[in-house]
Design a protein around this nucleic acid. Structure first.
Lengths: 241, 241
DNA sequence: TTTACACGTCAATGGTGTTGTCGTAAGGTC
DNA sequence: GACCTTACGACAACACCATTGACGTGTAAA
């Protein structure tokens, strides 16, 4: 009795042979699906992304997607990797590690914010896809060239990338909130924090104007600056760029 | 034609009169539901929290929950609010600003991680509720006592709190992932990053053992340490504690 | 003791991801 | 050009999800 190998439903991207159009005339591909999904999310919000709706947007039966992605999770990872790739497009190293890390961090942050709905879905995943590994390699390269010893470089890399992604996801989530909820959250600064008594909350009362102004923007640029400053301090003087 | 006011299904906590037991003998209450939900998440993982399963755990029909919460979103907010309270319980200042900020950051992070499903929703919102304002006041107080000038203190506060919440949300989201997806993400480190060629990805190949080990945990503790170090450097010597 | 209505229950609606099966047409081969 | 093989799109079904309207019971107030 021969052990029958279960036929894998998903054909890896290289091995595809047929390009049969759907009833509605669309010719599917991994690339088309990812782009359609991003467009769907951008136009109708993160909650609009379902296999059924994506199928409809593509002009195909929902189940056809399972020929390209094992499940929705695999699709999400593809979306996340696409975002990472777009963040790196056209990035050039200057040779100054601090400037390079700064520009890369700000790029990642900005790119995710420009697709907030998709960013929320993918920012906390490890995809292992090409764009991701390229980014990891690049950042480790910057740190190595700067002269950081390997154990420190690894921890610094971890802190740097997680902080970039975490802030990106957080700011994206705030942006992706339903309009009513977002406005309500912003109004809290004036309606609650602006009216706290100096007796019970002296420091908030004293700092309020500065605070309300600063909290309107993202905390990421300054947090990144602090991170880079701490790394510069830790860099052995002999290896300084 | 009189405008008929739609009867609200949810009775505010104060106005309840009857405590009718369910068929299985449970007497429901907002408090019991919140605690049961947190226990459900803690015991059976984040994906175990659904209205149907929560109803079953309570010994009640799932739809009975809608007498207490307008929808699942309201339930999750109640869970998140409960978490904020628990995070601050028993925290004491030591007078050492660096140690106090560290302990507060780690507490917030740890508390959110212990109930990831609720954390994912709560970390993105400005609630303006008492527990939140108390935390803001406390942190600003620590910074003021340390001697940071107000404009710097405000920016540092912003970076600190956003960093704590962003990392908490990010790590919680990873933890809240379905078990299969979480394990897949962890496996990627060995199956993809461990097998990258030194030709195409020299820095990853060189750093791999350190990298794989470090990426197993959260990047937050080290990122927080770097943030605190940078703040210490920026602190005017004359005002040092 | 009566009565009003809070609230638990039932049933139904319309959504979700996912899978087994099948037919068909696209490619490769001759 | 004819013939196979099989990739792949379509269909139908399954199990789960959140949510809601209707209903009757029994509790607590009067």
């Amino acid at each position: 009795m021969s052990e029958r190998v279960t036929a894998e439903r998903v054909i890896p991207e290289g091995g595809r042979r047929r390009r049969r159009p759907t009833k509605q005339g669309a010719v599917l591909s991994e690339r088309l699906i990812v782009e359609t999904a991003l467009r769907l999310v951008a136009q109708h919000g993160a909650e609009a992304l379902s296999v059924r709706r994506l199928g409809a947007a593509l002009g195909a039966d929902p189940s056809a997607l399972y020929r390209y992605f094992r499940n929705t999770d695999a699709l999400l990872l593809a979306l996340a990797d696409e975002l990472i790739g777009r963040a790196q497009e056209g990035w050039r190293a200057t040779g100054d590690w601090r400037e390079d890390l700064r520009s890369m961090g700000l790029r990642i942050h900005a790119c995710y914010l420009s697709h907030p709905q998709a960013a929320v879905l993918g920012a906390y995943r490890t995809t292992g896809r090409p764009h991701e590994t390229a980014a990891v390699e690049r950042i480790l390269g910057i740190l190595a060239a700067a002269g950081f010893p390997a154990p420190f470089a690894v921890r610094a890399y971890h802190a740097f990338i997680d902080q970039a992604l975490a802030f990106a996801a957080q700011d994206a989530a705030a942006l992706a909130l339903p309009k009513a909820a977002r406005e309500a959250d912003e109004a809290v600064w004036n309606s609650v924090y602006g009216r706290l008594s100096a007796d019970t909350h002296p420091h908030i009362a004293a700092a309020f104007p500065l605070l309300a102004a600063d909290m309107r923007g993202s905390g990421y640029p300054f947090a990144l600056e602090l991170l880079l400053a701490a790394m510069a301090v830790a860099l052995p003087a002999a290896a300084g760029s």
